[in-house]
């Protein structure tokens, strides 16, 4: 079975502010802001650069932050993707 490939919604208008490793993301479409830690912020930025399945996204995010690719990182990415889908920020990429 093909792995699910994720991407940032093409119409998402995202604006960022960062202070001391903490990020506030403003999603203009919904009018909501999200207070993110560095891991989540890095993952979303990676997803913005290129669509990825959850394993690839875990690897790219972990390598960016010099973290091990372990179950904690994988779970973090899975949860983040589910959340981003509910928020309308990420979608399953059209195949």
């Amino acid at each position: 079975m093909r792995k699910t490939v994720w991407c940032v919604a093409s119409d998402a208008r995202l604006h960022w502010r960062e202070w001391d490793g903490e990020v506030v993301l403003f999603h203009e479409n919904s009018g909501n802001i999200h207070h993110l830690n560095l891991f989540a912020a890095t993952a979303i930025r990676q997803l913005l650069e290129a669509p990825a399945d959850s394993e690839t996204l875990t690897e790219r995010t972990a390598s960016k932050l010099d973290l091990p690719v372990d179950d904690e990182a994988r779970d973090g990415i899975e949860q983040l993707l589910t959340r981003l889908k509910t928020l309308g920020i990420a979608r399953v990429a059209p195949s």
Binding site: D11, E28, N29, S30, G31, G88
Partner: peptide, 16 residues
């Protein structure tokens, strides 16, 4: 302007 943004967003959510 807010109304327009909200409605566009809401339509997208209903579609999903």
């Amino acid at each position: 302007d807010q109304q327009k943004r909200v409605v566009e967003w809401e339509i997208g959510c209903i579609r999903q």
